[in-house]
Design a protein around this nucleic acid. Structure first.
Lengths: 190, 190
DNA sequence: ATTAAACTACCTACTAGTAGGAAGATACAA
DNA sequence: TTGTATCTTCCTACTAGTAGGTAGTTTAAT
């Protein structure tokens, strides 16, 4: 076996959350997709809240280590930012992950179990912090010229990314993501 | 009577959709809030799909006439744009409508009944068209200087608005909306 | 012998939706 | 003006199906 049942469950659950949010899927849906009985899923994840909590935790950890390795292995701030956006562009174009799990859950954050909501909030904070640090580095190297503080520009950029995902989804046009986000980074260049 | 039962149902349903999306509420929730039996709601709206369809239709019509009257009654393009953003800023700050109904539904558009999805899509198109026409007028009057075409800048602006709503909600900070969207219009000024 | 992981079978609560009837208002003809 | 038919709105009572979750058992590997 190359993938544990728990991982299969989490993968399926994640794609279901991306498609329809917290209330958009059931244990029965996972059961069908994984090929396991409903009760067996409860063996791995006693409650739905716990399942989604683990799912979001895994997601944020992966995101954080992914962003960290971009900062370490990609040469300059401009390229780091571009690599981040390329990642999403690819995910959206090939429909492998057409929406951010945390963005989806953020929309319904009022209805989420508190621990899940807290994880979602933290992902937004982490992403904003990462963008801020990349922008700061870019300013120091005179690669970016910002109209506002790095913190503000990071918030603007993050909002653009999420908004672009939403527009691409709403209008059924995957290319819209790059069309929206591309010009936004161009505007930051010195 | 100053508000019909149907309108009450639609109002409640709308606030429930804004809070938790299509799958985030039930007829029982509406029943509790309106003070009417579940079956009576089915008298006014036979199915949930029809209810949400009417709800979205009402929403898009109101939005369209609201935007239209902004163009007619507010002096210049800059002020029209600002008035649109002020409207949302107010809705978010006083929590009267902390998220756009169609943005919420767009996130789960894959799971929506087709007629509802079509209405949501059209709202995005209408809003983009309105923003485009405002930007065009602003360029003609030399009030805006755009880096890209009005169509592209309109898409960017719309995405910023939706992304800003999401960030404000995710981070629980209503002021974040204006902090994100404000600088975006400033950048368009000539 | 233990333990993890799967199963069958079930529970309660809730889902959207239906059937049929009661109360009241409106219309209209005798 | 009364009787009656109709329409609207809401009700009680119900259905079939699905939700998340539990109890107890089998299977199989350690």
């Amino acid at each position: 076996m190359e993938q544990t049942t728990s991982e299969k469950i989490l993968d399926i659950a994640q794609s279901l959350v991306v498609a329809g949010g917290y209330n958009g899927f059931s244990y029965a849906d996972i059961s069908d997709a994984v090929g396991i009985r409903k009760a067996s899923i409860h063996h791995h994840f006693p409650t739905k809240a716990e399942l989604v909590q683990v799912l979001v935790d895994r997601y944020t950890q992966r995101a954080e280590s992914g962003l960290k390795s971009l900062r370490e292995h990609v040469p300059g701030p401009v390229e780091q930012l571009q690599a981040y956006l390329n990642y999403w562009q690819k995910c959206i174009l090939d429909a492998s992950e057409p929406f951010c799990v945390c963005a989806m859950l953020a929309a319904e954050i009022q209805m989420l179990p508190e621990p899940v909501a807290a994880h979602v909030r933290r992902h937004f904070e982490n992403l904003a912090a990462w963008l801020t640090s990349v922008l700061k580095a870019g300013v120091e190297q005179k690669l970016f010229r910002l109209a506002r503080s790095p913190e503000e520009e990071a918030q603007i950029l993050m909002a653009s990314v999420h908004g672009a995902m939403l527009s691409a989804r709403a209008l059924g046009d995957p290319n819209l993501f790059a069309a929206i986000v591309g010009p936004q980074i161009a505007k930051l260049r010195a």
